[in-house]
Amino acid sequence: MSRLLDTGLEQLTVMVYKMGEIAEKTVGISLNGFMHGKDTTQEVKGLSEVLLALTVEIEEKAFALIAKYQPVASDLRIINSYMKIAYDFERYGRYAWDISLTHKRFSKLENCALAWGPMKQLMKKVTLMVSKSTKALKNLDAEVAKSLAEDENKVDELFFKYLDHLAESPTQTKCALCNLLVARFLERIADHTTYVGEAIIYIATGKKAALR
């Protein structure tokens, strides 16, 4: 016989999965716009706001479940982790919006992303991490979640390499400034994917992992 709590947990799961899909889509649209000189601020802003609203909704739902059912063990770990993951997905969206805004501020610098080769690598890596984090959540795959730590190290490496590259450049260009900001936002998204990974490991194994 299913428990009353199960209905609430199922609803919460659907909401968190939905957030993951929207967050992945938001990052994709933003980076695609950046790559192809397209202004995506309005679309990304709209999606970012949907993510924010869902975060609030998930938090309220989670609080109601805690108050009503006083969950323990795996039930409590799931609720606690979903609240954290919802926040991280909301952050994916917010940084995606920042990327779109930065791109717009620098006047649609077409091919700016190509101004420094490894920038493309950085975008590809972070896009993959976002995708990995949402898939690992659906499969509660602790191994994939753990692999985000290695990906994140690579992102950091690329980010700092870019900083060094800029520091050594004789002139500062608009593209360099734009890319620096975008790289920073990407690095932050990568950080949040590892937090999602930590939450997935906690749900799946009960162990508190530190992926960063």
């Binding site: 323990v72 063990a73 795996s74 409590l76 009960g206 162990k207």
Partner: peptide, 17 residues
């Protein structure tokens, strides 16, 4: 025990399964 019980039986009992 209430956060991460070792036994599956404990898990099932305390979560009301």
């Amino acid at each position: 025990l209430f956060e991460n019980p070792k036994s599956e039986l404990t898990e099932k009992y305390i979560t009301g399964k």
